[in-house]
Amino acid sequence: MDLKLDHRTEDRLTIVEVEGEIDVYTAPRLRELLIDLVNKGNFHLLVNMEKVDFLDSTGLGVLVGGLKRVRAHDGSLELVCTQERILKIFRITGLTKVFGIYASVDEAKEAHGKDK
């Protein structure tokens, strides 16, 4: 399955919907979107990975790159993910300590609202 990307902004939070496979072939598209969003002043990003079928280290690299970019603007990049197959990759690489990972978009929005 290819990669589908969409995004919307709710309040100050930009929600990026990702569907499909994030790998060495498709990850550049996600990287371009994250860079474009940051360049347009969106510094609080929430990446919804609930419909991601596959994620490899290239995809992890893109997410880390996005996190570094938003942090340069005192922003945030957090994730929504409950799929064990995806969470396992974050655990193996130790990135669960780097990203805020939520069980739902609503939960992440609520936490983001408290941080404001």
Binding site: D56, S57, L60, G61, I92, T93
Partner: peptide, 12 residues
Amino acid sequence: MSSFGIAVIEGL
């Protein structure tokens, strides 16, 4: 990050 690939393989 490219070296993460090996770490992921070793973890899997």
